[in-house]
Design a protein around this nucleic acid. Structure first.
Lengths: 149, 149
DNA sequence: CGCAGGTAGTCAGTGTACTGATCACCTGGC
DNA sequence: GCCAGGTGATCAGTACACTGACTACCTGCG
């Protein structure tokens, strides 16, 4: 009677993310989460991004981005500055601590990604990333079909 | 300076799940979430499962399973019965409403899965599911390395 | 200049998802 | 029969992730 969830891409995506979180906590950091790293990474080396732009870059809505930014800011990893030229925007900038943590974390993340994908052959790893990317891209254009006019 | 997240499997897994949730709300149900369906699906056609077993089947910890069960129970879709033979366990059973909803939702889910995977060729769809499954399985045995003695 | 419409941020509310602590209950050994 | 250790459920706390409502602010049109 029940359906076999191992043929359901949504279920597998959830399990995949779950496995990733587990490995992240073990090999990267238990303090800085993967979405937090995504924010640090987006802001790294730039000084003109606001929260909305960061959210767009990494695929998060405004509310969630604000929460994550607020945690990073509490930890002194980045600062929120009101844009003097546009009073609506919060410009985000890494602090020195934030830049150091970003570099350190980035190195661990790339090691972790290797372990995460290790059950697959190198060719298969590329195929997996490519197929996931194509679904995500297709869904993005489904979400905002404005580009084509 | 910043890393390219489109080569990070964890980031792609999050985006994939996000795309899935969007499509689920549009094509399956905005009331019943995917994890809620997973619980209904696990319980369907059985009468001897407790919360722990359901969580193990679908890959959820005890706390999250309890929360989801509690929401489904509030909506009258399943009942929690104390096992008379083991006072620790909550046996879960679908109500008639729950069984009807499960069947209806299952049909919509299988349609939705086709749409979700539509950007890929049929062969590629199988490859994607297989590669995701292999990572998840490998992570499961990493988590609980007891089976082999 | 002044206002209409759009935009960035925040807030409230809901729903996963986890850890760690606690309680109730069962089981096996004595 | 009792107690030590294990197990199922619950609770508190933290962190995503979304929608919808609201505020502050900018921009362009008249």
């Amino acid at each position: 009677m029940p359906a076999d969830l191992s043929t359901h891409p949504g279920h597998l995506a959830r399990r995949l993310q779950q496995a990733h979180t587990l490995l992240w906590n073990a090999l990267v950091s238990a303090e800085t989460t993967s979405p937090q790293f995504a924010v640090l990474n987006a802001v790294a080396g730039r000084d003109d991004l606001d929260q909305r732009m960061v959210g767009d870059l990494i695929g998060l809505d405004r509310s969630t981005t604000a929460e994550i930014v607020s945690r990073l800011s509490d930890r002194g990893l980045l600062v929120r500055v009101r844009d003097p030229r546009d009073g609506r925007r919060n410009l985000l900038r890494l602090t020195d601590d934030g830049a150091v943590l970003h570099r350190q974390t980035a190195r661990r993340v790339s090691r972790m990604n290797k372990v995460f994908l290790a059950p697959l052959e190198p060719g298969e790893q590329q195929v997996l990333l490519d197929l996931m990317r194509r679904i995500v891209t297709a869904a993005d254009s489904f979400r905002a079909p404005d580009e084509v006019g």
